[in-house]
Amino acid sequence: MAGGCSLAGRVADTAGVDCSGLEAAIRPATEAIRSTIADHLRSEEPLTLTAVTITDAVGSVLSRISLAGALQAILPSALRLYATDAPYDMGRLM
């Protein structure tokens, strides 16, 4: 499967990564999201990335991985806090 990923419409990976199937494409996409988040945390730059879209060779969307989806396995409790509707003081959380 050849294709690319779109970083929330900001960056298109036109070269793509060849994968044997969707499951094989999810891992590098998830790793790319985590790496991008880490880079932005280190540089203290705002992160506008919201998701990575996995496409096939002709550009048909096969899957979309959100930031929360990429982080769920490693930060489940933080994501539960983020997902609540209750207001909270960010200063007290840091």
Rank of each mutant, 00 (worst) to 15 (best):
M1S: 13
A2R: 10
G3F: 11
G3S: 05
G4H: 04
G4A: 09
C5V: 13
C5D: 10
S6D: 11
A8I: 01
V11K: 02
A12V: 08
T14R: 13
T14Q: 08
T14L: 08
A15D: 15
A15M: 11
V17L: 12
V17N: 04
D18P: 07
G21K: 04
E23Y: 03
A24S: 15
A25K: 04
P28L: 15
P28V: 12
A29L: 10
T30M: 07
T30D: 10
I33L: 08
I33H: 01
R34G: 08
R34K: 11
I37C: 14
I37W: 03
I37P: 00
H40V: 03
L41Y: 07
L41T: 10
S43T: 15
S43Q: 15
S43G: 12
E44P: 03
E44L: 15
E45I: 04
E45N: 08
P46N: 12
L47M: 15
L47N: 12
L49S: 04
L49Y: 03
T50C: 11
T50F: 00
T50R: 14
V52D: 01
V52N: 03
V52G: 02
T53L: 08
T53W: 04
T53Y: 09
T53H: 02
I54A: 12
T55Y: 13
A57K: 11
A57L: 09
V58W: 10
G59H: 07
L62G: 04
R64Q: 15
R64G: 00
R64T: 15
S66K: 03
S66C: 04
A68C: 05
A68M: 03
A68P: 00
G69D: 14
A70L: 06
A70D: 03
L71V: 00
L71E: 02
L71Q: 00
Q72R: 14
Q72V: 08
Q72I: 10
A73P: 01
A73W: 05
S77G: 02
S77W: 01
A78H: 06
L79P: 01
L79G: 01
R80C: 01
A83R: 00
A83Q: 02
T84Y: 00
D85N: 07
A86R: 06
P87V: 11
Y88E: 09
Y88R: 14
M90I: 14
G91P: 00
R92A: 12
M94P: 00
